[in-house]
Simulated scan of single mutants.
Amino acid sequence: MTEFLVRHFVKNHEDVEKVSVRTAYGVLASVVGIFCNVLLFVVKGAVGFFLHSVSVMADAFNNLSDAGSSVVGLVGVRMASKPADEEHPFGHGRIEYI
């Protein structure tokens, strides 16, 4: 599944030395993480609500917080893809690790 997504959504996916390709990989991973975790939140939340299960609903909210982590990762990847400027002559790539 990962190879399928990469082939279809990352242009020039073999050329990982290019910043644009690495950014596309990061964006793809973040978007897939957000989508899957929100989907899990909805399904688990509904099941937990109908079964009156606090533990299943708690797990649903754990998935929602994981989606939030993916949003933070998406923002980091976007910020890291900024080109070099006067204050950052070598670019913003290291911000991704923060």
Rank of each mutant, 00 (worst) to 15 (best):
M1Y: 13
M1I: 15
T2N: 09
T2S: 08
E3T: 14
V6T: 08
R7S: 12
H8K: 12
F9I: 01
F9A: 01
F9L: 06
F9P: 01
K11R: 12
N12G: 08
N12D: 13
N12K: 14
H13Q: 10
E17S: 13
K18L: 11
K18H: 13
K18W: 12
K18S: 12
V19A: 13
V19L: 14
S20V: 11
T23Y: 12
A24T: 06
Y25D: 03
G26L: 01
G26S: 00
V27K: 06
L28F: 01
L28A: 04
A29F: 06
A29I: 06
S30L: 02
S30K: 01
V31E: 05
G33P: 02
I34M: 04
I34Q: 00
I34P: 00
C36T: 13
N37R: 02
V38G: 06
L39T: 08
L40N: 09
F41Q: 03
F41N: 00
V42S: 07
V42G: 07
V42D: 07
V43M: 06
V43H: 04
V43R: 04
K44D: 06
K44S: 08
G45C: 04
A46C: 14
A46T: 13
V47F: 07
V47Q: 00
V47L: 07
V47M: 04
F49D: 10
F49C: 10
F50T: 11
L51N: 11
H52F: 12
H52A: 15
H52W: 13
H52D: 15
S53F: 02
V54N: 12
V54A: 13
S55C: 11
V56N: 04
V56L: 09
M57D: 07
M57K: 15
M57P: 06
M57R: 14
A58R: 05
A58W: 06
D59V: 15
D59Q: 05
D59Y: 11
D59R: 05
A60K: 05
A60L: 01
A60T: 03
F61I: 13
N62L: 15
N63R: 03
N63W: 03
L64P: 01
S65T: 14
S65M: 15
S65G: 10
S65K: 11
D66L: 14
D66C: 13
A67T: 03
A67R: 02
G68L: 04
G68A: 05
S70L: 07
S70T: 08
V71F: 04
V71T: 03
V71I: 10
V71Q: 00
V72F: 08
G73V: 05
L74I: 04
V75A: 09
G76C: 05
G76R: 08
V77L: 05
V77T: 09
R78I: 14
R78M: 15
R78Q: 13
M79R: 09
A80D: 06
A80E: 05
D85W: 03
E86D: 13
P89H: 03
F90A: 12
G91H: 03
G91P: 01
H92W: 06
R94V: 14
I95D: 10
I95Y: 12
E96F: 11
E96S: 08
E96P: 05
Y97E: 10
Y97K: 13
